[in-house]
Amino acid sequence: MSQLEELYQEIVLEHYSRPRNFKKLEGANRSAQGYNPFCGDKITVYLKIEDGVIADVGFQGSGCVISKATASLMTESVKGKRQEEAVEIFHSFHNMLTRPPGSDFDNERLGDLEILAGVSEFPIRVKCAVLCWHTLRAALEQKHQTVSTE
């Protein structure tokens, strides 16, 4: 599989065209907005936090394949997790994308997010993949300012 084929593999494109949890979440008690001025990608992440657990999550916005598919996979990954766990998943995900070329990474917490490992071969697109995560973290921390990847 070429680097490009890995980046745009079927399952990634499927998450792009049919994103999971792509909705404004009714009853959300946290939300944040993210913006990537480089691409023009915009995202809003909604969270329903109950006793420190992400009981439900949703997102809305527009963007490229990488940004939308990552957001979709992210919502599946963090749903039902404790807040700290979600942040740890973000760290693992970030490490996977910014690792030196060809090196291994710890996939223990990543689950399906591992299918995005190929983004690391496209350094300029890493921003697209982390926008939703920065926005998630801002929502967890209840930051009201729009987060930016720049």
Binding site: S2, Q3, L4, L7, Y8, S17, P37, F38, C39, G40, D41, S62, G63, C64, V65, I66, F122, R125, C128
Partner: peptide
């Protein structure tokens, strides 16, 4: 339609074609 400019840019780049994508 339905394809973000950056995805167009990345795929064209893999073909050796340099264009600008963004605002």
């Amino acid at each position: 339609e339905g394809i973000h400019a950056h995805d167009i840019g990345t795929i064209l780049d893999s073909e050796g074609i340099a264009i600008r994508t963004g605002h």
